[in-house]
Computed example of a mutant assay.
Amino acid sequence: MRRKLVVGNWKMHGSHKANAELLSGICEARPFGADVAVCVPFPYLSESAVALAGSDIRWGAQDCSAHEQGAYTGEVSVSMLAEFGCRYVIVGHSERRAYHGESDQLVADKAKAALARGITPIVCVGETLAQREAGETETVVKRQLSAVIHALTHCVGEMVVAYEPVWAIGTGLTATPEQAQAVHAVLRAQLKAATPKADGMTILYGGSVKPDNAVTLFGQPDIDGGLIGGAALKAADFVAICRAAG
Score class of each variant (00 low, 15 high):
29 A>T: 15
29 A>E: 13
31 P>M: 06
33 G>T: 09
34 A>E: 13
35 D>F: 04
36 V>W: 08
36 V>D: 02
37 A>N: 10
37 A>M: 04
37 A>C: 06
37 A>E: 10
38 V>A: 00
39 C>D: 13
41 P>Q: 04
42 F>D: 04
43 P>M: 04
43 P>S: 00
43 P>G: 04
44 Y>V: 12
45 L>G: 08
45 L>V: 05
45 L>H: 06
45 L>K: 00
45 L>R: 07
46 S>A: 08
46 S>V: 01
46 S>M: 10
46 S>G: 15
47 E>I: 12
48 S>H: 07
48 S>R: 07
50 V>P: 11
50 V>F: 11
51 A>M: 11
52 L>A: 01
53 A>P: 10
53 A>F: 11
53 A>D: 05
57 I>G: 13
57 I>A: 01
58 R>T: 00
58 R>S: 04
58 R>F: 04
59 W>C: 08
60 G>A: 09
60 G>V: 06
60 G>M: 06
61 A>S: 14
61 A>V: 15
63 D>S: 10
64 C>L: 13
64 C>E: 14
64 C>V: 15
64 C>F: 13
65 S>D: 15
65 S>N: 12
68 E>Q: 08
69 Q>C: 15
69 Q>L: 14
70 G>R: 04
71 A>L: 12
73 T>K: 01
75 E>C: 11
75 E>W: 08
76 V>M: 10
79 S>A: 15
81 L>C: 14
81 L>P: 12
84 F>R: 08
84 F>L: 09
85 G>H: 04
86 C>F: 07
86 C>M: 05
87 R>M: 03
87 R>D: 07
88 Y>N: 07
89 V>M: 08
89 V>T: 01
90 I>V: 06
92 G>K: 10
92 G>E: 01
92 G>F: 01
92 G>M: 03
93 H>R: 00
93 H>L: 06
93 H>M: 02
95 E>T: 06
96 R>E: 10
96 R>P: 07
97 R>W: 06
99 Y>L: 03
99 Y>C: 01
99 Y>E: 03
100 H>L: 12
100 H>N: 06
100 H>P: 08
100 H>G: 14
102 E>L: 04
103 S>Q: 08
103 S>N: 10
103 S>V: 13
105 Q>L: 13
105 Q>R: 15
106 L>G: 06
